[in-house]
Structure formats: C-alpha cells, structure tokens
C-alpha cells in the first residue's frame, strides 16, 4: 500500500513537466526514504535523477519498496486536470497495474479521481559515484535558461569554461559565434539573484545544447541552478526542490575527434 499526499500539488506537475522532455517512460521507486526516479534518455547521453523525500509530503505511507513504470506524457495529461492550488493524493497497491490520483480543491468543494495504467519498464540503474568537482557554478535558473535558449539559436553545442574570471558559455554556428560571460555576483538584493563560482581548477567542457535546453524545463522548480563540472565526469545540472529534494540532470560531454 502506497499513499502520498502533497498539499502543494502543483509541485508534482512541475516535476513531471521538468523531465518529460527528456524521458518518455520511467520507473518511479517508492521507499521509506521517498519518491525517486532515475532514467536515461533514449540515446544514453543524459540522465535524470529525482528525489522527493518522504518528510516533504504531508502524508507519506509506503509499506514496502515498490517500483511503478509510468508514461510521463500520460502522467502530465492526468496532472493537467488538477487545479494549481489542488491537493494531490497519489495511491498505489502492490501487484496492481494502475495507480490513482485524487485532486482536492483547497475549499474541498471539488474532488476528482483519476486512474492511470502502469507500464512494464526494463529500467537500468546506473551507479553514480560521489565526486569532487573542479568547478561549481550557482546562478539564477532563469538566467541559465535564457543563455541556453539564446545560444541554441546560434549553435548546436556550448562550451562551458570556468576560470577565476567567472563562467563563460560559448557557441559557434553557421551564422557566427557567441560568448556569454557571467561573473561572480553576490552583491544582489535577493540571494536567488546571486551568481557564485567555486573553482578548484579551471575547467572547459563541451555539451549538446539540445539537452541543456531540455534540462531548463525544470526552471519553475527552483530560483537557482547548480552546475557542477569536472573534466572526467558528466556535468550535473541541479534544481533543488525546496524542503523536498532535487531534480538532477547528468549530461556526458562531447569530445573533439
């Protein structure tokens, strides 16, 4: 028996919208720790890892570990039927091939029930080691989204370079080239507007902009994004979900032939 209640139901909508661009079907794992997911995109270049900790839910009951294969577009269709202020309760049963969503309006005058079919998914789990990164950039998530969108209209790849000057995003395409430098800036009115660059070693890596743009679908989840870079590792683009957990995207770099 599984029962999760989230008063801030819109959060679940945002989570599904953040990842469904990258993966179509995914296996959600439920345990005492929380509601989690790890899924790779179909070309095995990018991976998404989601964690919503049990403490973040208003009610969390998970009698035993359970994995549920879900189609994210179908999930989005169901969640779109919830109002933005609705309370969402998610229920599942061992051995059942469906799960249910219940949406309650804040005033309790409308209650909707949706049942969604589960899917059989062969999920591969990758072991992601803890790592020390050469550089960690924290910046406003909207700024990062803007940069990826702007560069995506000029080139296909972005070179992200971190030096003591700051972080530089560069691209090159048929029409020309572009460089955007963001300097460390903590002199701001609100902490979410700050850009910080933590650098142990300078690092420069190249990534496909298509994936970066897909990661930015998670922007509504967090004011800040954290980009962790090391020359021997995939980049991690992390959106923290306040009091609950995170969505992390991993992307393997491109290398020069």
């Amino acid at each position: 028996m599984l029962e999760l209640r989230l008063v801030q139901g819109s959060l679940l909508k945002k989570v599904v919208d953040a990842i469904r661009d990258l993966v179509n079907d995914a296996s959600f794992d439920c345990s005492a720790t929380g509601f989690s997911l790890q899924a790779m995109d179909s070309s095995h270049v990018a991976l998404v890892a989601l964690l919503l900790r049990s403490e973040g839910f208003d009610h969390y009951r998970c009698d035993r570990n359970i994995s549920m294969g879900m189609n994210l577009n179908n999930m989005a269709k169901m969640l779109r039927c919830a109002g933005n202020d609705d309370i969402i309760t998610f229920k599942g049963d061992d051995g059942s091939d469906t799960v249910s969503f219940m949406f309650e309006s804040p005033t309790q005058d409308k209650i909707s029930d949706f049942e969604m079919k589960l899917m059989d998914i062969d999920s591969e789990r990758l072991g992601i080691p803890e790592a020390k990164y050469q550089a960690i950039v924290r910046m406003p998530s909207t700024e990062f989204a803007r940069i990826c969108k702007d560069l995506g209209s000029i080139g296909d790849t972005v070179v992200i370079s971190v030096t003591k000057e700051g972080v530089k995003f560069s691209t090159r395409g048929d029409i020309g080239s572009a460089n955007i430098v963001c300097r460390q800036n903590t002199d701001v009115d609100k902490p979410e507007q700050a850009t910080t660059v933590e650098m142990n070693d300078p690092v420069s890596l190249t990534f496909a902009l298509r994936y970066m743009n897909s990661f930015t679908k998670a922007t509504p989840l967090s004011n800040q994004v954290t980009i962790s870079l090391s020359s021997e590792l995939p980049v991690v683009v992390e959106y923290k979900i306040a009091e609950m957990g995170y969505v992390r995207f991993y992307l393997a770099p491109k290398i020069e032939e």
């Binding site: 990758l126 393997a252 770099p253 032939e257």
Partner: peptide, 14 residues
C-alpha cells in the same frame, strides 16, 4: 568535429 560520449563510459550499470 565533436563526438558525443555516452553515460555508460562514466557510470557503470548496477
């Protein structure tokens, strides 16, 4: 010319 590396190069299957 760039080649795209795949994730399995870095993260082993468990």
């Amino acid at each position: 010319l760039y080649i795209q590396i795949i994730l399995w190069t870095y993260f082993p299957n468990t």
